[in-house]
Write a protein that binds this DNA or RNA. Sequence first.
DNA 1: GTCTATAGACCGATAGAC
DNA 2: GTCTATCGGTCTATAGAC
Lengths: 193, 193
Amino acid sequence: MSTPGVARQPVEPTAAQQRVITAALTLFAEHGIGGTSLRMIAAELKVTVAAVYHQFHTKDEIIFAAVESQLRRLEDAVERAESEPTTRRARQAIIEGLVELTMGVGRSMSSVLNDPAITGSFSRHAGYRDLLRRLQILLMGEDSSKESRVRIVTLLAALNGTASHPLVAHLDDDTMRRELLNIANQVLARPRR
Amino acid sequence: MSTPGVARQPVEPTAAQQRVITAALTLFAEHGIGGTSLRMIAAELKVTVAAVYHQFHTKDEIIFAAVESQLRRLEDAVERAESEPTTRRARQAIIEGLVELTMGVGRSMSSVLNDPAITGSFSRHAGYRDLLRRLQILLMGEDSSKESRVRIVTLLAALNGTASHPLVAHLDDDTMRRELLNIANQVLARPRR
DNA sequence: GTCTATAGACCGATAGAC
DNA sequence: GTCTATCGGTCTATAGAC
């Protein structure tokens, strides 16, 4: 049976489209979305601009597909966590899943999801909001207070911002993973007061 | 006597230049640096592009001045904290200073300082590195471990990312300030294990 | 200090050959 | 699926009048 829950079945990208998406994500992480042109994407793939346009009809479609691909990875992690037998293990699983996601392309789950060109429109994206809600349940249980919502947003910002910051870019993957795990646990801990 | 320490005396911007900087910061926060053109900045100021070029000779100069202005505000906060009589009060002062900075233009100390178009070059900026080092001393004392450096970067990312995220943009200033203070204390707390 | 006018490069996007 | 060639528009930047 197919997974319901999120009302969106984005067409799976073809292999050629996936190559465009990967190149785009790399360049977005480096120059921002507004600072990345189709020319640059084409150059990264060593083809011409027209060849890229054969895969996607507009730049916006590429941006959308790039965001979707990251959201799909996030959704996979959420689903894996939700299938854990206990809430405790589910919580541990999603934390580890988020850290792994953050270690991805250019050590950023979402230079895309953090770009001002994106956040505005995607904060109204139904699938995105649904994912954040499921994240919240996994991480904070039924505590749906304002504080707990803020904490989720902070967690994502802290993981991404730390992993992608050039001042700690030199840290090896194992160290970074360990640090991100610490950060996640700390941000999610109940304040001591 | 003048303050040594940071080896940079950026020329104070004129009033006209400051207006350009403010407009630029607003637009950068909304569209990213790469997504902001001189046309947009000129339109925001209701003048022509040539008038903007009369204040700054290149777009890079505008970006640089915008970053410098944010760094100067950060430096002011650091200096105020450093002049506190006890380390405990200095620590409290810089935390509050960082939160106030974050509540600034477009609720972001640094859509600028977080933009991929910037971080790369400014992570080699001497003044920037010096500021981070002073921040580290204020917040973690003489603990100059790898973990403590990571923690500073995380703190900045968490504050900025949270304050500027559209999903919590509706929170009123007092609530946001309170949340940011909690976040700061939590990120800086020693892990419980 | 602001304007108009303009230069040359680059932008996103399309047509059509192979 | 990739190319060349081209469109109209916008980009950064400059020259020169007021």
